[in-house]
Nucleic acid binder design. Structure first.
Length: 707
RNA sequence: GGGUCCUUAGCUCAAUCGGUUAGAGCAGCCGGCUCAUACCCGGUAGGUUGCAGGUUCGAGUCCUGCAGGACCUACCA
């Protein structure tokens, strides 16, 4: 029975490029699943777009001097292009900003009002900085000042770049607006909070528990634990870019990006149906209890999609459906580390430029981080392309089609008498289809790929056992060779059906090669005897396969060409060099230059007020009550002080003893989780975002005043 | 600090409710084949399931502790 299905992929944030980690986590599995469900005859609606609001975007756009619209358009286009190149085919790929999607603002506002009417919003009034010059509230990041923890003079309201710590903007010393340098004032502002606790008590917990055994165990356990510590979350902010809060007197306030972003799934869908002239279809789909909604996401998004967004949907009280499942993937790394586009720790386009999309999709599916974080390695990638696609599947197709060209004048033979071995192979194909169906239904993409390749192995074994190259050479044996070839052709047909969700282009090529171009793939058809058992004259056979040059320098046709050893070696060499370089950087005592804008100009006297001294760490131990802090005894020559520093992420206590540091010595003492800190160590963020200490020159003894 | 998950062969991964001798693929080794993309097929070897305890007739699986890693969250330098 055909089902109505909505599939969404996490909305990528329009603030940078996406890499294979994103693709393999949320986009490729969704696309494969959609193709699979469509093969099953289900009515699938596949929605995505860019998430285009939020502070990070406004900051970067303003820093570049680019209008918000132009800024998000740039990344929208870039991301769209990346996804298209991976063969991800959404029904619609739009976004959440007003100029791209005129439906988003109204719908997000409607959700706000509906939630308010249903009593799901709490109102709270707090103090926040306000710029009288600009006439608007300043989000924490727009305020700079002296860090009240370390004395750093260019701390941002949310975070101090020197100590890397999160700050309470209201406590900044000498706060300045980072936009025009004026001094902001504290003013009361009202914000709205989503009452998640009420949802939990009334229905959310029961709903999540009803999903027991259906969701992935990691998602289920994580969410159940999450429920215990639910609190109201703010859903509004003071920002110039976003969806305005639809309340009188809320000028300058917008919906918090995490609130409006998932509503983008709906508004983008509404845009799609409206643009197609069927606006009524939108609510028919999203409010029909029979519709099944699936959110494909990465593990960092679980709480949002399994707790927060359902609360928004049901809390609005308008009958929106809740997700059927939230198939979250774990994280995908690259050769043992996180992808890092800016440092080059990624897959260069040139390295895979001539690898067909289908091969990439297949390889990524076999590496998908379904139950645990997984890793791209070049050798694994090559093994999948060469071993699975070229040697196993590709070569089976090749030996079959070439055999028919050589020994049967290019005409696929009619079905002959069927032997037990033939029947067993048909049965194996049917089993493979059942496995693919079972695994894809349960979001086990790796296993589905394995099932297809296992059939490839069966086919090659059949071919070898039957040895048609022997039988074809005798009069008596020729009919048997013909039947074997026909069975192999039927297996090619089976593969065309089986690989369609993962490798749509390859599926079409396979159908075409045996004279069945345009066949709609269907798992039901796999393993069935051909409906037209006669010979198939005029099949294109190898002529429709891509060309390549083989190891002997001859040009041939092949379904997949191999990924050469030299390329793997070259990439591994590149990474080896890069890794050494990165490790050298890590050990370097010079901090990476930050790209934060230069802070407001200060007078020399202001600077001179800071007393920095060279020192040496004499003792170091972990803070008993804080993960990120170390408690240090710093020798300043004239005295030894206790300084608490948030550098635990970068240094083990024992490696610090004896290390030279720069300490701010006239900073007001501060109690940090129970221990008084008398000063601050100068540090800068490394390229991994973790703090790195600054060291004085060996010629400056402890206690030397630095300026 | 609280929470969720992960650690199984050289590599990448399986193992249903706690149940037979922990299985595949790749890489390795031995052999066979020549239709095919130097492919394919058969065979073989490879394990203290991160470590230490516990529960049980029986533990990769459940419990406790430890080590390492990922993510969420709090505190926050």
């Amino acid at each position: 029975m055909a089902e109505k299905i909505i599939v969404t992929s996490a909305l990528p944030y329009a603030n940078g490029p996406i890499h294979f980690g994103h693709v393999v986590g949320a986009y490729l599995p969704a696309d494969v699943y959609v193709r699979y469900r469509r093969m099953c005859g289900d009515d699938v609606h596949f929605v995505c777009g860019t998430d285009e609001h939020g502070v990070a975007i406004t900051l970067k756009a303003e820093r570049e001097g680019t209008p918000y619209e132009a800024y998000v358009d740039h990344w929208h286009t870039t991301i769209d292009d990346t996804l298209r190149r991976m063969g991800i085919e959404f029904d619609v790929f739009s976004g959440t900003s007003h100029h791209r999607n005129p439906h988003h603002r109204a719908l997000a506002q409607q959700f706000f009002l509906d939630l308010q009417a249903e009593g799901y919003l709490l109102e709270k009034t707090e103090e926040q900085f306000f710029s009288e010059a600009l006439g608007r509230f300043l989000p924490d990041r727009y305020v700079t000042g002296t860090c009240y923890l370390c004395g750093h003079e260019n701390a941002r309201g949310d975070e101090c770049p020197a100590c890397g710590k999160y700050l309470d903007a209201r406590q900044l010393i000498d706060p300045k607006c980072s936009l025009d340098g004026s001094t902001p004032v504290l003013r009361e502002t009202t914000h709205w909070y989503l009452d998640l606790g009420r949802a939990r008590d009334e229905w959310l917990r029961a709903w999540i528990e009803s999903k027991r055994g259906q969701w992935k165990p990691n998602v289920e356990n994580f969410v159940l634990a999450d429920l215990e510590d639910l609190r109201a979350r703010p859903i509004t902010r003071d920002l110039p870019w976003g969806v305005p809060v639809p309340v009188d007197g809320a000028d300058g306030k917008v919906l918090y990006v995490w609130f409006d972003a998932p509503i983008g799934y709906l508004s983008i869908s509404r845009q799609y149906w409206t643009d197609r002239g069927q606006p009524e279809r939108f609510e028919e789909l999203w409010k029909d209890p029979a519709t099944k909604l699936f959110h494909f996401i990465g593990k960092d998004n679980i709480t949002f999609h399994a707790v927060v967004f359902p609360t928004i949907l049901r809390g609005a009280g308008k009958g929106w459906i809740l997700p059927e499942n939230v198939p979250a993937n774990e994280f995908f790394n690259f050769e043992g580390r996180k992808f890092n586009t800016s440092s080059g720790w990624m897959i260069p386009d040139e390295a895979i430029a001539d690898v067909p999309v289908d091969a990439l999709r297949y390889a990524l599916c076999t590496m998908m981080p379904e139950t645990a974080d997984s890793d791209w390695t070049w050798t694994e990638f090559q093994a999948r392309i060469n071993g699975d696609l070229a040697d196993n599947l590709g070569n089976f197709v090749s030996r079959t089609l070439r055999f028919i060209e050589r020994f049967f004048d290019g005409e696929v033979p009619a079905c002959g008498a069927e032997t037990a071995a033939d029947g067993a192979l048909y049965a194996a194909a049917e089993r493979a289809a059942a496995e693919v169906r079972e695994h894809l239904s349960a979001f086990r993409f790796r296993r589905a790929c394995q099932a297809v390749m296992a059939l490839g192995h069966e086919c090659n074994r059949y071919y070898d056992t039957e040895a048609p190259w022997t039988s074809v050479k005798t009069e008596d044996g020729r009919p048997r060779a013909a039947q074997v070839m026909r069975v192999c052709v039927e297996m090619i047909r089976a593969f065309a059906h089986l690989v369609a969700p993962v490798m749509p282009t390859t599926s079409a090529t396979l159908f075409a090669s045996i004279g069945a171009a345009g066949t709609a793939p269907s798992l039901d058809a796999v393993g069935a005897r051909p409906t037209e058992p006669g010979a198939i004259p005029g099949a294109p056979l190898t002529s429709c396969l891509p060309r390549f040059t083989d190891a002997r320098g001859q040009e041939k046709a092949a379904l997949f060409t191999k990924f050469p050893d030299q390329r793997v070696a070259a990439e591994e060499e590149r990474l080896r060099t890069l890794r050494e370089h990165m490790e050298a950087e890590t050990q370097s005592e010079t901090p990476e230059p930050t790209h934060d804008p230069v802070a407001t100009t200060i007078e020399f006297d202001t600077f001179a007020a800071v007393d920095m001294r060279a020192g040496t760490i004499r003792r170091a131990e972990s803070h008993p009550k804080a993960d990120r802090l170390l408690v240090l005894e710093v020798d300043l020559g004239f005295e030894t002080r206790t300084i608490v520093s948030g550098i635990a992420a970068s240094y083990a206590p024992e490696e610090l003893v004896g290390r030279r540091v720069v300490a701010v010595t006239n900073l007001a003492p501060r109690r940090l989780r129970g221990i008084d800190s008398n000063g601050m160590l100068m540090a800068g963020d490394g390229d991994d975002g973790k703090p790195r200490l600054i060291a004085p020159d060996p010629a400056t003894p402890d206690g030397t005043r630095l300026s």
